[in-house]
């Protein structure tokens, strides 16, 4: 190992980092197993059969395929600068390709280096990786601190005014996705078209699934909408005057 070497892979493919990455994935899996068992136990007592819960699990899994594919493509693109275990850790945990590349770039700048540039040495990588991990951890810390507080607030609110708490989750859900979608519109005309095609194609598929007896389509609709709108984006981006 050599602090000034730019061969990140020689350093970052080490067994210790691999072990850490695998440990993280194991913990996520364990958490899911515990949660599923808790949901099945509770489901029995609130009159939800196992089949419904299994359907929920399957729908969630299928619906996440489209978004996962996109995450994978971007994660793979980061392999050159971070090597496998660091990519697995940083993309597998809270954070996104955008967050992590920005963090790494900003951290590298404090050492007069740029991400993947000629000064992106093993030493810079270690410092940047440390900064990324500390930063990612902050989301976990703030979740650990805030969740119990917010939960108490929510429960109190529910006792005082249950009507409000019936309205909050739906309204919040709509608020989140409205603001995120509309925020994409001014980015570029292709972004705007992509949002519209994605929304429209989902609406058409929901219509088909509800009124034409194609209920299986509900699970696949999100993935298909992503695929369709990305295909249009691809042609507009590479083969049109809009780009």
């Amino acid at each position: 190992m050599d602090a000034q070497s730019t061969d990140i892979w020689a350093l970052a493919q080490n067994p210790f980092l691999w072990a850490c990455a695998l440990a993280v994935y194991l913990i996520i899996t364990i958490q899911s197993v515990i949660y599923m068992r808790a949901a099945k136990t509770a489901g029995r007592d609130i009159g939800m059969d196992k089949k419904t819960l299994t359907t929920a699990f399957r729908s969630g899994a299928i619906a996440s395929i489209g978004p996962s594919l996109a995450v994978l493509l971007v994660a793979v693109a980061l392999l050159t600068v971070f090597a496998t275990p660091a990519v697995l850790m940083r993309i597998g945990l809270v954070g996104s390709a955008a967050t992590e590349t920005t963090s790494a770039t900003v951290a590298a700048e404090t050492m007069d280096a740029s991400l993947g540039g000629s000064a992106w040495t093993q030493e810079v990588f270690v410092v940047a990786f440390a900064a990324m991990c500390i930063s990612g951890g902050m989301w976990l810390i703030s979740t650990l601190i805030m969740t119990p507080i917010l939960k108490r607030g929510g429960s109190k609110m529910e006792r005082v005014n249950p009507e409000v708490m019936r309205l909050v989750p739906g309204a919040a859900l709509l608020g989140v996705f409205a603001v995120l979608s509309i925020d994409q519109l001014p980015e570029s005309s292709i972004h705007a078209i992509t949002v519209l095609i994605s929304g429209l194609s989902l609406a058409v598929m929901l219509y088909l699934s509800r009124f034409k007896g194609m209920s299986w389509l509900k699970e696949w609709a999100l993935g298909l909408a992503i695929f369709l709108s990305l295909t249009v984006a691809y042609f507009l981006h590479h083969h049109s005057a809009l780009a």
């Binding site: 996705f177 609709a221 999100l222 990305l230 984006a233």
Partner: peptide, 17 residues
Amino acid sequence: VAQTYILPAILGAVFVQ
């Protein structure tokens, strides 16, 4: 393309959903 347009491609559909 995936990197640039993945968010709009997901968000439009999810809002409708």
